[in-house]
């Protein structure tokens, strides 16, 4: 049932645009495309001396789910290193039903996507871009 997909929490995350934009002097950047739907995410990060994210920004040329996910990810990314981001990704995977268990906030908002397999990549694309940026 698609009409349950665009619930207020997802729309609110997307409209919040947390972290939207570019960094003036990123330590690393990465861009990921989804060749199936054309979504594109570019992520800039500034890292501290220990490889932790000090600052993050994203540009999303994609759907509302991708925008909401990038916004949610940006809201929890600062202070985390690659391992910390991998932990957060499990929450997104749980939310969309790819892993068992309860998803922590803010990713629990993506629970309606579990019923839409073709849209799950939209939620995960920002994670892929950030993974590349941190690798």
């Amino acid at each position: 049932m698609s009409d349950q997909l665009y619930q207020d929490r997802i729309v609110t995350l997307a409209k919040a645009k947390t972290g939207a934009g570019k960094l003036a002097a990123p330590t690393k950047s990465a861009r990921r495309d989804n060749p199936l739907c054309g979504d594109r995410v570019t992520i800039d990060v500034r890292l501290d001396g220990q490889g932790r994210i000090a600052e993050i920004a994203h540009q999303v040329r994609g759907c509302l789910l991708c925008q909401a996910s990038a916004s949610a990810l940006s809201s929890v990314a600062v202070g985390r290193d690659a391992a910390g981001i991998a932990v957060v990704r499990h929450d997104a995977e749980r939310a969309v039903g790819r892993e068992a268990g309860e998803a922590a906030e803010p990713f629990a908002a993506f629970a309606p996507v579990a019923a839409h397999k073709s849209r799950q990549e939209c939620v995960l694309l920002p994670f892929e871009a950030l993974k590349d940026a941190l690798s």
Partner: peptide, 13 residues
Amino acid sequence: GVHTHDVAQVLDS
């Protein structure tokens, strides 16, 4: 202001 996939998804509903 609305991505094409979101339009299509709403139309599906």
